[in-house]
Every structure is written in C-alpha cells, then in structure tokens.
Amino acid sequence: MAYSDKVIDHAENPRNVGTLDKDDPSVGTGLVGAPACGDVMRLQIRVSGEGVIEDAKFKTFGCGSAIASSSLATEWLKGRTLEEAGSIRNTDIVKELNLPPVKIHCSVLAEDAIKSAIEDFRKKQSSRSGA
C-alpha cells in the first residue's frame, strides 16, 4: 500500500514527540489502544488556567499512519480550547492525511486519545476542586 506524502512527512518527522509530567495537575494524559492490537497512543496536553491547550506531546507504538495521526493531532491541539479540541473528529484526520479505509482505525484511535486526555485533565481538576 502506498502512503500519502503527508503520512510519510509526519512519520519521518513526527512533531511534538515527548513526555509531559503525568502527575502535574495541569496535564491530561490519554493512553489508548493495546500492544496486542499493534497500536498504542499516548497523548498528553498541558492546559492553561483559561482552558487553552498550551502544549501537546505524544508517543505512539504503531504503523506509520498511527504515528502520523497522533503527530497531526498534537499539532492541531496546540492553542485550542478544550471545547475546540473535543470537537476534532477522526474524519478530519482521515481527510487531512488521506488515510485509506484499512487505516481509518488509526484516526479513530487518535480521536479517542484526544478525548481521553481531556477527560483525564477534567477529572484531575474536579478532584482538586472537590478536595
């Protein structure tokens, strides 16, 4: 199967690779997928007091399309509010990266990772305000 130029670009030069401190209250972490399924994404966001994503980092175990989907997601997340971030759909990623049908699950996983990171951040915030 041939990859699109955008997938190759992201896979060869992934943006925002790295790790944020998962114990930092301003950081939300999403870890989705399973090693047995061949892809795992960890996506992390750092959120400002105003609810804007200041930084996003990822690490992904998976094929080129999975790496590209998560790399693109981190690019899109930076500077967005949580609400805007939560409205990113996997179909947006499919379109941007020209993913073939067999790779659509990579984009679904990226959307799940975004949602899961936002949820983790919100959970942290509510447990802090509750305490």
Partner: peptide
C-alpha cells in the same frame, strides 16, 4: 520489541 513492524518497515 516495542516497535511495530509496519512502522519500522516504513522507516
């Protein structure tokens, strides 16, 4: 270990 095969093939 820890590197998915297709990802490596692409690299």
């Amino acid at each position: 270990a820890y590197v998915e095969g297709e990802g490596l093939m692409m690299a």
